[in-house]
């Protein structure tokens, strides 16, 4: 076949593939936007649902989602970051560390509904935490842990060797070098990892449905139950109660996650400027 014809065909296929991706993405976003935008109002965001058809707002579900996400982040961030520092800087690189890394990667791909079941058995029942913010946050933290840990490890490895040498050359100990040079230099990327994991937690449904309960409730203490936005959306749509409100909730959820991803991009851009 003629070379230029092959070229045109190849280009068309690539163009088509790229085009489909864009169309799908655009279709999903615009569909939710068109159906949801009419619902969005201050009243929808800041009032409670009421009545048999859950008319009114979604305020308690927003609070439940934010509550559980922040709690999960507070649990995950220190553990994941310190574990990653140990793995990247201190552990003797070998089979054991390789296995830990493989386990973390596997943990990241465990279906979230399995993680939810695990959270139900361990936190809700065995530990006696019942359906609560704490149970849900602990179960979510299992999901977030490998994401934050691997991101932190990559961030630490991305700090150039010669910068560490500069510190050692001045008579710094390993811990001084790690805590004063390596971690601050890696911080923007670490924060990016935490934000991405948090975005994942905001959108998570399966884990929280098992561990937080479904009662519409404004949580105050970590032992209160609640209903996150994702579960609210699921209930409204699947039980055919109030489809317009479901789209409104979906739109809010997407905006929230978009916000997290934009935040992550901002930090990553700052990181690349500094390195």
């Amino acid at each position: 076949m003629n070379k230029s014809v092959t070229n045109i065909i190849a280009l068309s296929i690539l163009w088509l593939a790229a085009g489909i991706t864009v169309v799908v993405l655009f279709a999903v976003i615009s569909y939710v936007f068109v159906n949801g935008i009419s619902q969005i109002s201050p009243a929808f965001i800041f009032t409670w649902p009421h009545g048999v058809n859950a008319e009114g707002g979604v305020w308690p579900t927003i609070v439940s989602t934010m509550y559980v996400t922040v709690l999960a982040m507070l649990i995950v961030a220190p553990i994941a970051v310190l574990a990653a520092v140990y793995l990247a800087e201190y552990a003797v690189q070998g089979r054991l560390v390789g296995m830990i890394r493989f386990a973390a990667d596997s943990l990241a791909s465990v279906p979230s509904i399995v993680m939810g079941l695990f959270g139900l058995a361990l936190f809700v029942e065995a530990a006696g935490l019942r359906f609560s913010m704490l149970s849900a946050a602990l179960a979510l933290s299992f999901l977030m842990l490998p994401i934050v840990m691997r991101a932190t490890e990559e961030a630490i490895r991305a700090v150039p060797k010669y910068i560490r040498w500069g510190s050692y050359g001045l008579g710094a100990t390993k811990w001084q070098t790690v805590s004063r040079i390596v971690i601050p230099a890696a911080m923007p990327r670490i924060i990016t990892g935490i934000i991405l994991a948090t975005g994942r937690a905001v959108g998570e449904t399966a884990v929280v449905i098992y561990t937080m309960g479904q009662a519409i409730n404004l949580p105050i203490t970590p032992l209160d139950s609640g209903r996150p936005m994702t579960v609210h959306l699921y209930v409204l749509a699947m039980e055919g109660i109030n489809l317009p409100a479901a789209y409104g909730t979906a739109l809010l959820l997407m905006v929230l996650i978009l916000g997290f991803n934009l935040g992550a991009r901002y930090f990553l851009r700052r990181a690349s400027k500094r390195m």
Binding site: P160, Y162, W165, G166, S167, G169
Partner: peptide, 11 residues
């Protein structure tokens, strides 16, 4: 003390 080939100021 030591100076390296690649200037390596801390960020």
């Amino acid at each position: 003390g030591m100076i390296f080939q690649q200037p390596n100021p801390f960020p």
